[in-house]
């Protein structure tokens, strides 16, 4: 869990301007071809899928170049059309400057900068990002390298299997895992998922994770319906997805806790999580 969604300030009421688009219209263009596993590469040459990665950043100067490099490498290796949309909330550490340098390395078609004036929160960052996304799929991940782009080809492969609306990464199934967590952190994570599962039964094993692939219109519809902030935000998106009957598939991911900077999980975060959970429980 990146520090980004730990300290999220109240944000404007963005869901009031809901535009519920039917998500069915674009799925017809997606081929259901079975990918060839032999080469380890995805054969995408006959399709027109484009993947937009949304990277909301706040003080990620050290991480951003590397995650961008890894993303570009992965997409290039698998011959995928992509763009990386960097939504920087006026980081004081110069994240935007380094993003501009990356843009000149990888090109304006691959690196899109959509900075904002201040720290406005994760939900609006995604809205802002989607509005600027030209891909038909959107990938959401943390910019702190706890999510590794190597999982993206797996997400895409899984998505094509049954034309899933959402593919979500999970640390908790076979093949997944974490690095850099002590027992307390693991227990908290397990307990948090258990309570959420008991109260909301969302049908997803990793509720608090945030490494996901969405069809763009699906993400738009879900995000417009989502009201939570902070930790609960990712969880509510899954609950809403279930409410809308979107199909969700899971792919195991490895999670390496922040290498640069520290990840924060204190009593405040736990209380915030429980409060958010309760709000969801009593409103859904």
């Amino acid at each position: 869990m990146s520090r980004f969604h730990v300290s999220i300030t109240p944000e404007p009421d963005f869901q009031s301007s809901t535009t519920n688009k039917a998500h069915s219209q674009q799925s017809s263009t997606l081929p259901l071809s079975k990918p060839s596993y032999a080469s380890g590469h995805l054969n995408m040459s006959n399709s027109h899928n484009k993947y937009s990665v949304l990277l909301p950043t706040y003080n990620e100067r050290d991480n951003l170049p590397i995650i961008t490099w890894l993303l570009a490498k992965t997409f290039k290796e698998h011959n995928l059309d992509y763009e990386i949309i960097i939504i920087d909330d006026a980081s004081p550490d110069g994240t935007l400057e380094v993003a501009k340098q990356l843009q000149s390395v990888y090109g304006e078609n691959h690196i899109v900068l959509r900075p904002r004036a201040g720290k406005l929160g994760l939900g609006t960052a995604y809205i802002h990002g989607i509005q600027n996304a030209t891909g038909n799929f959107v990938i959401i991940m943390d910019a702190d390298m706890s999510h590794h782009p190597k999982a993206i080809p797996e997400f895409i492969r899984k998505q094509k299997e049954r034309d899933y609306d959402i593919v979500t990464g999970t640390r908790y199934v076979n093949g997944g895992g974490v690095y850099g967590w002590d027992l307390r952190r693991k227990l908290t994570s397990r307990g948090a998922n258990f309570i959420a599962d008991l109260l909301l039964s969302p049908g997803v094993s990793d509720l608090t994770g945030s490494f996901r692939l969405y069809k763009k219109d699906v993400l738009h519809q879900i995000i417009n319906a989502t009201i939570s902030k902070g930790y609960v935000f990712q969880m509510e998106m899954m609950v809403r997805a279930k409410q809308f009957n979107f199909s969700v598939a899971e792919v195991p991911i490895t999670f390496v806790d922040r290498v640069y900077g520290e990840s924060k999980l204190g009593a405040n975060e736990i209380v915030g999580y429980l409060k958010g959970l309760w709000t969801l429980f009593t409103s859904i």
């Binding site: 590794h148 908790y172 076979n174 997944g176 895992g177 974490v178 690095y179 850099g180 027992l183 693991k186 227990l187 397990r190 307990g191 998922n193 258990f194 490895t254 999670f255 390496v256």
Partner: peptide, 15 residues
């Protein structure tokens, strides 16, 4: 919780 904690996999190789 106990079971899931026990099977919680570490992934040093990913690191």
């Amino acid at each position: 919780i106990g079971y899931n904690l026990l099977v919680f996999r570490e992934c040093p190789e990913a690191y």
